[in-house]
Amino acid sequence: MTNKIRTLDDLRRIREASTDLTSARSKGRASIVVGMGTCGIAAGAREVMTAALQELEKRNIHDVSVTTTGCIGMCQQEPLVDVIAPGMGRITYGLVTPEDMAAIVAEHIVNGHIVERLVIGRAD
């Protein structure tokens, strides 16, 4: 039995490993919001979202939430992705491809650098 808890350290280890079980039930330190209106889906938002999840999984990041939102009226810029990270406000990226998404996770979420070439809007 691999999960047998014999010491307090074992318990802590299981706790550590288990935090991911419920981490999606809190907002997390940052969030990625993918526009998934009909326009977004048609422009490939589905693939962008999958890319975001894969990139987070690859990097073993569990405290970033990924949610969807409806059309915000800028359909020609879809797929639209908002990233909200502490101290950097809400950044809206436009015409995001799955490859861009991976870069956004790496740069914006991990390194704290906004991917300027894709930015189409900012808000606090």
Binding site: I5, L8, L11, I14, R15, A17, S18, T19, D20, L21, T22, R25
Partner: peptide
């Protein structure tokens, strides 16, 4: 209403059995 009661790991994730420890 926050955890799955049938999963001890979710309880542990919320700090469960720390008191006993």
């Amino acid at each position: 209403g926050y955890i799955n009661p049938d999963n001890i790991e979710e309880y542990i994730a919320r700090g469960g059995y720390e008191g006993l420890g």
